[in-house]
């Protein structure tokens, strides 16, 4: 087989080069965007339902949770965005070695534009220098796209829509933090996470969910923290100490009485997911990504024709 023929064969398997597979890819991606924007994943729905049950009846926290639940039902039924802030659009793509990233990126951009036209995404991308909104959700850094090569033969696409309100209360700390008395150990990490939740109050549209990264440089730390939001809320951290810390943070935060929307109440946090990354001896960053109750995350596995084979959440 010539090199060209071999390439062609490989691309048949995984690259969306042919016209029909292009269309199929876009159809799958637009559907992924629609479902992500309009339906919360099962694990989030479960956590919200439990939180709603736990609130004392006839309190304003109970009232807020009731409205949140009705909103979830209504958005699904009407196939319209859960929240009008459809957030930063972030794609995580896991692909086999022979996959071509550039054409797939183009299809993602086209799908985002189409999903915006269809109203699944708000016109939400603004040029930071001119304030101009092109209305397409495309621009430098938008959408945010991350590729990873994996061993599997299939293409997996995960999508997170990260709202602005909750992004604004996300935080990064540099340890030691003398005002908080937080040193460079897990106890210090605990202190800064709790501080971030207190500072957020209801401003991030809680009950919220945290993704945390201990370590890394400033950029990687934030990136890994956000990536923790891909974990299911009911999973278990394989690292024993982090698992313990995750549980402890949720328990402690739910004693603070901040509650849904900061109205006071039992559930302040739905979950906390923590990872770590190496750091240089001079730095010790802890990054916290706060996600609102409108936790929009979904994923698909594509079959070899790029149709949706399976939903991931």
């Amino acid at each position: 087989m010539t090199k060209k023929a071999a390439k062609k064969k490989a691309s048949k398997k995984v690259s969306p080069k042919k016209l029909d597979s292009k269309q199929q890819t876009m159809e799958s991606l637009v559907e992924l965007i629609r479902i992500t924007s309009t339906v919360v994943p099962d694990d989030v729905f479960k956590a919200i339902t439990t939180a709603a049950k736990n609130e004392e009846k006839n309190t304003i926290a109970d009232y807020a949770m009731g409205i949140i639940k009705t909103n979830i039902d209504l958005a699904k039924y009407k196939s319209q965005p859960l929240c009008q802030d459809t957030g930063t659009v972030i794609f995580y793509i896991y692909h086999p070695p022979s996959f071509h990233q550039t054409p797939f990126k183009e299809l993602i951009k086209k799908s985002v534009t189409l999903a915006t036209k269809k109203g699944y995404l708000r016109q939400n991308s603004v040029n930071s220098l001119t304030g101009e909104n092109a209305g397409t959700n495309l621009g430098e850094g938008h959408p945010s796209i991350h590729f990873y090569e994996h061993k599997g033969s299939e293409v997996e696409v995960k999508l997170v829509l990260k709202g602005g309100g909750c992004e604004n209360v996300s935080a990064q700390y540099s340890l030691p933090d003398t005002t908080l008395g937080a040193g460079r150990d897990l106890e210090g990490v605990r202190k800064v996470i709790l501080d971030s939740v207190h500072k957020a109050q209801g401003k991030g549209c809680g009950p919220g969910a945290l993704g945390v990264c201990i370590g890394g440089d400033r950029a990687d730390s934030s990136y890994f923290a956000k990536k923790q939001l891909l974990r299911k809320l009911d999973d278990k951290n394989s690292h024993k100490d982090l698992d313990k810390l995750e549980k402890e943070i949720v328990e402690t935060c739910n004693k603070l009485g901040i509650g849904p929307m900061g109205f006071g109440g039992k559930t302040t946090l739905l979950s906390c997911k923590i990872t770590s990354a190496n750091r240089v001896p001079a730095s010790f960053f802890v990054s916290i990504s706060y996600m609102c109750w409108a936790f929009r995350r979904q994923g698909i596995v594509m079959n070899k024709n790029f149709a949706i084979k399976k939903w991931l959440y």
């Binding site: 949140i68 909103n71 929240c83 929307m261």
Partner: peptide
Amino acid sequence: FHAVGGAAQVLAE
């Protein structure tokens, strides 16, 4: 008055 943040559909109704 505080409306429930994110409840775009309920409020639009």
